[in-house]
Structures are given as structure tokens and as C-alpha cells.
Amino acid sequence: MHGTMGMEGLAYVASLARALIYCHGKHVIHRDIKPENLLIGAQGELKIADFGWSVHTFNRRRTMCGTLDYLPPEMVESVEHDASVDIWSLGILCYEFLYGVPPFEAMEHSDTYRRIVQVDLKFPPKPIVSASAKDLISQMLVKESAQRLPLHKLLEHPWIVQNADPSGIYRG
């Protein structure tokens, strides 16, 4: 699942949200959700790979880990974080599926850090993306982690309901 996947990638968002709800229910935070760690099975099913950065959530974490473009502000700033880091990463993934690049990507690492911390979120005019999609992403990419859209609410968001196959399998 490298690079941009366009609209077909979005069929996986609901499936990924359900997988993360399961993980979080088992007190596991993945902490490194990105395209390279998502696998597509023979039947088109989504699988999360590479739990190398995952942790049990019994202790709040302060570790700097994961891939810079996908890190939430609290991990960039090395403050305590919880399962909502995976919501942020899923929001980044949604953006990248639509636009082909992560939202806070910059030439210099220091600029990427700054853009993440400031949540310098911009939606380019091309490709044309629905207001509903932008609304969903904007609710996930919120600096205050407690204010991020919970995963169960993501599954109820109009844009997900309208675009995701209920099985989470892309049928092209």
C-alpha cells in the first residue's frame, strides 16, 4: 500500500477504524499507522502489520516513535499520549489517500515538526475533495487529543457511511 491510492484507499478507512477499535479494546495502541504498515489480503481484506512500536496502554506513554509525517503533536513534543494517537494517524492516512501526500510534509524535518505542532492543515484546490471528507479529516487532526473524533463516531460519519463498503473490502 505504497503511495497514493485515491478513492479506492478510502474503502479501507472504516475497516482500519474497526481494527483499531479492537486493538484499543485490548489496551494496545499501534502508534505507527502508515501506508507501509497496511497489507491487502488475497480477498481484498485489510491487515495491519508491524506492531514494533505498539504498546499496552496501561501506562501513558512519552516515547518518541513512529514516522514523522504521521506523528501527532503530543508525540512530536514528547508529552504524554494515549490511544488517540492512532486516530490522528488515521486522519493523516485519509488525507494522503485523497491528496497523495501527508498534510504536514515539508522539505525540512524542522518545518514538518512545526506544521504538525501548529496543526497547519491546508486542503489544496486539486484534486477536488468533498466538504464532507474535509470535515472528517479536520475532526481527526485536532491538536487536543481528547477532542479528536472517536473511532466509533468515525464509522458513523456521513462521508464514511456514503463511501466505505460495509465489509471494508474495496470492490473497484
Rank of each mutant, 00 (worst) to 15 (best):
Q139S: 08
I33P: 01
P166L: 14
I169N: 01
L155P: 01
P127T: 06
A133G: 07
P150F: 09
Y170N: 06
H56E: 14
E77P: 12
H81N: 09
A17Q: 00
P127K: 04
L39A: 10
A19W: 01
K126V: 07
T4C: 14
E96I: 01
S132V: 01
M107N: 15
K34F: 04
I160D: 00
C65F: 13
F97R: 04
I21F: 06
C94G: 07
Y70E: 08
F104G: 00
R115K: 15
E156V: 13
V129F: 00
K26Q: 15
M107Q: 11
G100C: 11
L46E: 02
V55K: 10
R18D: 05
V101P: 07
D32S: 11
E156D: 15
T63W: 10
I137A: 04
P124R: 04
R18Q: 13
E156W: 11
E80C: 08
D32M: 08
D86K: 04
K134T: 09
E74L: 05
L151R: 02
Y95T: 00
V79C: 12
E36P: 04
S110I: 13
L98R: 02
A131M: 11
T67Y: 03
S78I: 14
S138C: 10
Y99P: 02
V13Y: 03
K122D: 06
L68C: 08
T112S: 06
I92S: 00
P72N: 15
G9Y: 01
A164S: 09
W53F: 15
S132Q: 09
Y12M: 02
S110M: 14
V129M: 03
Q147L: 08
V55Y: 05
S110Q: 12
D50H: 07
I40R: 00
I21D: 10
V28N: 03
E96H: 02
W88K: 03
P150I: 11
D86Y: 01
L10T: 11
H157T: 03
Y113N: 06
E144D: 13
I137K: 00
K126N: 08
P35N: 08
D111G: 07
Y170V: 12
G3Q: 13
E105W: 03
K122Q: 11
D50A: 04
D82P: 12
G52R: 09
E8N: 15
P35R: 09
